[in-house]
């Protein structure tokens, strides 16, 4: 969520236990402003917090003019000093895929990648040493990226794709109506669309190319991986991801205000199919 409106936005998502102590909140207000200055971002967002057993990572992201373009992510352990995370790369994913369990809260902590080790010993003996240790920082990068791709969402119409490609905030977005806001189809994954290309021409006919350039949540697998609730009597719509518990999205109907934040352990809920 946007760093500018952080206290207000945090209050809206507090229903699921998301809360920052006054100390952290104040620190964030200050430090994120400086981050914005130092890295020359157009917009800085507080992405969330990943709770480790011995400490927590606070993650922020900075955006350039293209809102859907690549974004820089930073993390901090104390909400004051921020350090840049390396951009996620394809080859990192298999390295961290086998890691399970809670984060430690120490970026230099090294995981012993048991699964990888065994595989390597079986298949390529030579690679075994390189992949045996994975730093937690790397895991953090991938986890944040995965969460963003899987459950980073925006309301329909909040962003428009310009004919030249870049995605901008829609100036004339006035928010979803309450009835619209209760439907999953009014929310989009804010990432490269996957299902959109697979739609039939008939389905595509009603889409507005400048608005409907993203995948909607409607066809998320498994079905029912979102909890959509109207809180405070219709003043806020809150979406909680059941796939990545801890991700809370809020939208105030009929206003521009929306955003999401992740406050969790950084673990995917792989038991979801059994739990519905």
């Amino acid at each position: 969520m946007d760093a500018e409106t952080l206290p207000y936005a945090l209050d809206l998502v507090a229903g699921s236990g998301v809360c920052l102590s006054p100390e952290k909140r104040t620190a964030l207000r200050t430090s994120l402003l400086l981050v914005r200055r130092d890295y020359r971002f157009e917009q800085v967002r507080l992405w969330g917090r990943i709770q480790g057993t011995r400490g927590a990572y606070y993650v922020a992201e900075g955006l350039g003019p293209d809102r859907a373009g690549p974004r820089s992510r930073l993390y901090s352990l104390n909400c004051v000093d921020w350090s840049l995370l390396p951009p996620p790369a394809e080859e990192m994913i298999p390295m961290t895929a086998g890691l399970k369990g809670r984060f430690q809260g120490d970026p230099s902590y090294e995981y012993e990648n048991y699964d990888k080790k065994e595989e390597d010993l079986e298949s390529h003996m030579s690679d075994g040493n390189d992949l045996a240790l994975v730093k937690e920082e790397l895991r953090l990068v991938i986890t944040v990226d995965q969460i963003d791709k899987a459950v980073g969402i925006v309301p329909r119409g909040a962003y428009i794709k310009t004919p030249l490609g870049p995605v901008h905030e829609n100036r004339s977005f006035e928010g979803l109506s309450l009835t619209e806001a209760k439907k999953l189809s009014s929310y989009f994954h804010f990432t490269e669309p996957v299902n959109l290309k697979n739609k039939t021409l008939l389905e595509k006919a009603d889409l507005d190319p400048s608005i409907d350039f993203l995948d909607s949540l409607e066809h998320d697998i498994p079905k029912g991986s979102w909890s959509i609730q109207v809180e405070r009597g219709g003043r806020i719509v809150v979406l909680r991801s059941l796939l990545w518990p801890g991700l809370t999205f809020y939208h105030v109907p009929n206003t521009k205000q929306h955003g999401y934040i992740y406050f969790g352990t950084g673990e995917k809920n792989i038991d979801l199919p059994f739990m519905l």
Partner: peptide, 13 residues
């Protein structure tokens, strides 16, 4: 106290 601890609901709630 829980707000100091960084956990809890909004004050209104």
């Amino acid at each position: 106290y829980f707000e100091q601890a960084g956990f809890g609901l909004s004050l209104e709630e």
